[in-house]
């Protein structure tokens, strides 16, 4: 086997995926360019902005800093996996209602960081939310309406926000 190309199998937003990828490709590159899901963004390419955040086995990670090869065997969730056919995920609805979106470039990453947090801790306090989203930079909102969105989602979270 030529290790320059790697075969990986993983679950993406609930569906099994099987792909041949370049050995050193980032998870972000594979998700955007091979799979064609554009929700995860490249804001800096070096893990400084969080716009590429996805969830791997329930944990928020910067997909620009993760080798796609390391997705092998993992359960991966991107922003596209949040909403269902019935409509927005409660977390997304909360961002809409509380004006947590301005330009929207940081939004998918923020949603994924928050989603992972709520899995780990369904009722985080302000400091815990801050700790979880400090790696997601936003230049538009000053974060107030983002906190308001998340805190409202937490208030109404009876567990479904992490589903």
């Amino acid at each position: 086997m030529d290790p320059k190309t790697v075969h990986i199998e993983f679950t993406l937003n609930g569906s099994p995926r099987s792909l041949e990828i370049p050995g050193a490709a980032s998870a972000l590159w594979v998700i955007r360019n091979l799979i064609g899901l554009k929700g995860a963004k490249e804001g800096c390419g070096i893990g400084e902005c969080g716009a590429c955040t996805i969830e791997v086995d329930g944990k928020a990670v910067n997909s620009c800093l993760m080798l796609a090869a390391q997705l092998d065997g993992a359960d991966v969730l991107t922003v596209e996996g949040l909403a269902s056919e019935d409509g927005l995920h409660p977390l997304q609805s909360s961002f809409l209602e509380h004006h947590g979106v301005q330009c929207g470039f940081c939004t998918p990453g923020l949603l994924m960081s928050t989603h992972a947090l709520l899995k780990e801790n369904p009722h985080p306090d302000h400091a815990q939310v801050s700790k979880a989203i400090a790696g997601n930079l936003c230049r538009c909102t000053g974060y107030r309406q983002i906190f308001a969105s998340i805190e409202d989602a937490v208030k109404h979270n009876s567990g479904e926000a992490a589903q």
């Binding site: 070096i46 800093l65 090869a69």
Partner: peptide, 26 residues
């Protein structure tokens, strides 16, 4: 050798790391 990859990926992108193989020990 690569584990979390958070430094290796930055160096790969910058072109400062050129290597034939990445050995994942994570």
């Amino acid at each position: 050798i690569v584990a979390g990859g958070t430094d290796v990926m930055v160096d790969l992108r910058a072109g400062t790391l050129k290597t034939d193989y990445l050995l994942d020990v994570s």
